[in-house]
């Protein structure tokens, strides 16, 4: 790509905002973000990402998959965020590949939060 000018910078921003659904709404109904910082990867985020990709491909879903860095609460990794249009973002913690498949079934396809995997206040199971 050629060098950017200040105007180009603005164009990328506008286009990005539209795509991310921040202003416009071209963006897909469901967006799934796997957090893949060192902590996420050390906890198995790669396996979760693979499970997600496979489930989405197998079921031929129209889902936007993205990766991102660490959101800060590293001991709940691997963390997956699911953003359905017009709904609050839902965060899942300690996600395993099997849990990812369940989340795809229940939340992404079915629209029901997979409460079993919701990130909760304490990391210890009672």
């Amino acid at each position: 790509m050629a060098k950017l000018s200040i105007e180009d910078l603005q164009k990328i921003k506008d286009k990005g905002r539209a795509a991310a659904g921040m202003r416009g709404s071209e963006h897909k109904d469901v967006r799934v973000v796997v957090h893949m910082g060192t902590c996420g990867i050390a906890s198995g985020a790669r396996g979760v990402m693979n499970a997600l990709l496979k489930a989405v491909e197998d079921k031929n879903l129209d889902v936007e998959i993205s990766q991102s860095g660490c959101i800060g609460i590293c001991d709940r990794e691997p963390i997956v965020s699911v953003i359905r249009k017009n709904e609050p973002m839902i965060r899942y913690g300690k996600v395993t590949p099997a849990a990812m498949e369940e989340i795809v079934e229940s939340h992404i396809i079915g629209g029901a939060v997979a409460e079993k995997y919701l990130m909760i206040e304490t990391s210890e199971k009672k």
């Binding site: 060192t38 902590c39 050390a42 906890s43 609460i73 590293c74 001991d75 990794e77």
Partner: peptide
């Protein structure tokens, strides 16, 4: 330190 302190011990 490998910087994964939240997952200690690693």
């Amino acid at each position: 330190c490998v910087g994964a302190c939240a997952l200690a011990p690693v």
